[in-house]
Structures are given as structure tokens and as C-alpha cells.
């Protein structure tokens, strides 16, 4: 049964990489059931992430947000700060797709705080880029400029000419 769970996870990932997102969802749902059976919270967390990602490409952003929230909750329980940061970044982007910019900002700020704590300059740069865009969408140009300048500083530091 444990091997079956891993096989479902691998199948889900393969369908995902092939662009078969419905099949990816079915496989990851099976993987999730088996992870729960075993109380394997890491596998459960991975299944939530994979399901969130697949729902993004299915255009079902509300479903993606629900799974990313479950990922975030488990990442906190498992005390995995890197995964917590990644979940916040995914939620920020998903709420941008949903055009809910206040919520997008809320999650991008959380991502920024963790990226700073982890001294992840690439993550910090991406958070600032995203925040600049979200504040622009809200017409808050002062905050938008603030984050655009931070993004510029970090991009220069990293030698990211693009």
C-alpha cells in the first residue's frame, strides 16, 4: 500500500509534466488518500502542493488556493520555513490571478518576511516584484515605487539584467 502511494505520486507528476492535468489531479488525489491512511504528513503536504499546481493549469484558481492553504498549514505544522515561503508565494500569485490584490499582498508580504529571514535574495527579489505589481493594480503608487526600487536593487546585486 505504501508503494502504491509512491506510484500514484510519481504517476501524478508524470501526467503533470505531460500536461495531462486532470489525470494528474486523479493520481494525486489517490496519493493523498494513501498518505492520510499512513498518517504520512510530508507525503500529504506534497500531494497538496502538487494538486494546487495542477489546478492552476486547469484554470481553477479557487481550488488551487484551497490546496495551497492546506500546504501552508502543514508546512507550519512541520516547521518547514522554505515550504511555508513557497506556499505564501503560490498563494500571492493565485490571488493575483483571482484579481484579489489585497489578499495577494498579504501573502507576498508573508513570503517576503520569510525570504528575508532565510536570506534568500532571489525569493526576496521576486516578492518585491510581485508586491510592486499588486500595489500598482490597487493604484497605490507610493508602495509600488518602493517595492520596484527594492526589486531593482536586488536585481543589480544578483546581476539579473533581465
Amino acid at each position: 500500500r505504501a508503494a502504491q502511494g509512491r506510484a500514484y505520486g510519481n504517476l501524478g507528476n508524470t501526467h503533470y509534466l505531460l500536461g495531462n492535468f486532470r489525470k494528474a489531479v486523479s493520481s494525486h488525489e489517490q496519493r493523498l488518500l494513501i498518505a492520510r491512511e499512513f498518517g504520512d504528513r510530508s507525503a500529504e503536504r506534497r500531494a497538496y502542493s502538487n494538486l494546487g499546481n495542477a489546478f492552476i493549469f486547469l484554470g481553477e484558481f479557487e481550488m488551487a488556493a484551497e490546496y495551497y492553504k492546506k500546504t501552508l498549514q502543514l508546512a507550519r505544522q512541520l516547521k518547514d520555513r522554505a515550504v511555508e515561503a513557497q506556499s505564501c508565494y503560490s498563494l500571492g500569485n493565485t490571488y493575483t490571478l483571482l484579481q484579489d490584490y489585497e489578499k495577494a499582498i498579504e501573502y507576498h508580504l508573508k513570503h517576503l518576511a520569510i525570504a528575508q529571514e532565510l536570506r534568500d535574495r532571489v525569493g526576496e527579489g521576486r516578492a518585491c516584484w510581485s508586491l510592486g505589481n499588486a500595489y500598482t493594480a490597487l493604484g497605490n503608487h507610493e508602495e509600488a515605487v518602493h517595492f520596484a526600487e527594492k526589486h531593482l536593487d536586488i536585481s543589480r546585486e544578483l546581476g539579473d539584467r533581465n
Binding site: 510519481n10 507528476n13 503536504r45 506534497r46 502538487n50 499546481n53 493575483t96 505589481n133
Partner: peptide, 26 residues
């Protein structure tokens, strides 16, 4: 406004480009 909308989508598009190859492996 239209140009800002395009910029706004860009950071999300970059994320989605990365996401295409992002799988949590067993």
C-alpha cells in the same frame, strides 16, 4: 493602464513558467 496590466501579469507569468516543471517528488 493597458501597459500596467501587462506588467502586472508578467510576474505571475514568470511564476507559472517555473511552475510548469515543478513537481514534489516521492
Amino acid at each position: 493602464f493597458q501597459r500596467l496590466r501587462i506588467i502586472q501579469v508578467d510576474s505571475v507569468r514568470r511564476w507559472m513558467d517555473d511552475l510548469k516543471l515543478m513537481t514534489e517528488c516521492e
